[in-house]
Simulated assay, not measured.
Amino acid sequence: MMKYLSLIVLFILMSCGNKEDILLPKSDKTIVSNIEDHSPIYIFFRTNDKDTLTEVNRKNSIITTNWIFNIDKRLPLRIVIPQVMKLQDKKRKEKAHKNEKAENYYSYADSIGKNMAFIPFTKVYYKLEKPSGTSIFFNKKNEILVNNVIVKQEELEGYLENKADKSTLYQLCFDKEMSFDSYLKNIIFLHSIKLETNENFIF
């Protein structure tokens, strides 16, 4: 247990002689358990007076490998997602050494299996705006709103299945003040009910 806590819940990075820590999100299930040929990217939680900031360390990232994003769970989406978008864009625009099979993953801790786990997000495009159309909105209070109607998480799949128009395309939306921890838990939940899209709206 202590080994699990030290390696996963409190992620330690020795960088330039300084000890850095990242508190990883936790979930009760593993989506991907092992990734070969990967490079780490770290996004740290920082504060300056009352402001919350990010610090990105990608000096060990290799463009042709799978990228593992180790992101502090305390960071709000409004400041962490723009950093993720910049890194995604850099990898997508790479021409000289592009590897079409290389993926991007978020790391987290499986609190049941006591192991490091990962979820892919290579095909996700983030948009910092409110979409038009039918939306499923996850707010910072951990409420789910389907077109402004609050639906309990355990009832969401059945609620959507009972809708008259089965062809409706839902836009997945997330409160910009939501923590990365809550966001990742929601993404893992959506994966479990097979409700995923290539666009995530953050506003």
Rank of each mutant, 00 (worst) to 15 (best):
K3P: 10
L7C: 08
I8S: 09
F11V: 02
I12G: 10
L13H: 05
S15C: 00
C16Y: 07
G17N: 06
G17M: 04
N18D: 14
N18L: 12
K19D: 14
K19I: 15
I22L: 03
L23R: 06
L24A: 11
K26F: 10
D28A: 11
I31W: 14
S33N: 14
S33V: 06
N34R: 15
I35V: 13
H38T: 08
H38S: 10
H38N: 15
S39I: 06
S39M: 09
P40Y: 06
P40S: 05
I41A: 07
Y42E: 02
I43S: 03
I43E: 03
I43R: 01
F44Y: 05
F44K: 03
R46F: 04
R46C: 05
N48G: 05
N48D: 10
K50V: 10
K50A: 13
K50G: 10
T52H: 06
L53C: 10
V56W: 01
K59W: 06
K59Y: 08
I62M: 11
I63C: 05
I63E: 08
I63T: 10
I63W: 02
T64I: 08
T64V: 02
T65Y: 11
W67T: 11
D72V: 01
R74F: 09
L75M: 01
L77N: 04
L77P: 00
R78V: 03
R78F: 13
I79T: 02
I79G: 04
V80W: 00
I81K: 04
P82V: 11
V84G: 02
V84T: 05
V84N: 07
R92D: 09
K95N: 09
A96L: 12
A96P: 00
H97S: 07
N99Y: 08
N99H: 11
E100V: 07
K101Q: 09
N104V: 08
Y105N: 01
Y106N: 05
S107P: 00
Y108M: 03
A109W: 03
A109P: 00
S111I: 14
G113N: 15
K114D: 13
N115P: 00
M116L: 10
A117Y: 09
F118C: 06
I119C: 09
P120G: 06
